[in-house]
Nucleic acid binder design. Structure first.
Ligand SMILES: [Mn+2]
Ligand SMILES: [Mn+2]
Ligand SMILES: [Zn+2]
Ligand SMILES: [Zn+2]
Lengths: 161, 161
DNA sequence: TCTCAATTTGATAATCGGTCTCATTTTTAG
DNA sequence: CTAAAAATGAGACCGATTATCAAATTGAGA
């Protein structure tokens, strides 16, 4: 049993919940897929691997992962929640390329310290924060003309009239 | 005519759009209400003041304000977009109290500089960013037991089972 | 000022991510 | 093994926002 399975089981038993094959299966795939996955993406991935677990269960289970401290939910501005394993993963923030939807993780202790300083000045107690830098990644700014090297998002229709 | 009305008109004419009484009325109320307003809140405020403008037009017009550079859209994690006038307003980020939904604005050039530094390190070009610190404000941490002094958000049902 | 094509509006239908409901199945303490 | 509690899948439902469309308004040019 992986450490992650243990963490999940601990949370499950301490909350009088139940260990199910669905939860184990979802945890497995969740750990093996790319970071910042959406519920829908995870659902499709599981289907590809032969699973018949329903989408509602995917949502429920991702929420459970978050409640157990295994994962965290993120929003990168495309209207879908994304999830990433955070157990044993250093805290970090994100650079989000709006061209190709690539997500680059970074860690900056100076910024974290300054956030705390700001909070102190306002007598505010931080328990979470969100720092995202939106723009264009290196790859995308090099290929000035081409459009979407690693597209992941649906392009939303824009009424320009 | 206020400077804001001029900016809007400039955007409107340069895009072959039309100046309407609705747009002027919405801009007026938008400028006179509190910052970080939702479309729904602005709609109700206008109704209170006797307007009969439809909600769809409020949404359309707030989007227009954003397109013209007068306003910006924000998301503070409660699932509704909020808007604030940013013309002639210094860039700032936000402390969001999850107890009372108070929003405190702050400005920190050191953090902004460090963000740019991070971006440079990753050869990334930032064109916008989002920094929000979530937690408990001074007022709320003082009244340890009381719940919602200036409640603004609907409490979402949480299935704890 | 009049005309009229283009734009905007209000009402409301549609969309979309996500949650809830409920009948059925699975888990697990005893 | 039993039975109560919890979880599941299917699909109904929800809330914020956008799209549709007929009717009204706007404004550039005559
Ligand atoms: Mn990450
Ligand atoms: Mn603000
Ligand atoms: Zn990119
Ligand atoms: Zn507060």
């Amino acid at each position: 049993m992986t450490k992650e399975e243990e963490i999940l089981q601990a949370h499950i038993t301490s909350h009088r919940l139940k260990v199910t094959k669905e939860r184990k299966a979802i945890l497995n795939v969740f750990m093996s897929t790319e970071r910042h996955v959406t519920a829908e993406e995870l659902y499709r991935e599981m289907k590809n691997r032969g699973s018949s677990i329903g989408l509602a269960t995917i949502y429920r289970t991702l929420n459970l992962f978050c409640a157990s401290g295994l994962a965290e939910q993120r929003h990168f501005g495309d209207g879908q929640a994304r999830y990433e394993l955070t157990y044993n993963v250093h805290h970090h923030d994100h650079l989000v390329c709006k061209q190709c939807n690539r997500i680059i993780e970074f860690e900056n202790l100076e910024i974290e310290r300054l956030q705390e300083k700001v909070a102190r000045k306002h007598h505010f107690t931080i328990y979470s924060h969100k720092l995202e830098l939106y723009g264009t990644c290196e790859a995308c700014s090099k290929e000035k003309s081409k459009s979407k090297p690693k597209s992941k998002a649906k392009s939303k229709k824009q009424t320009t009239k």
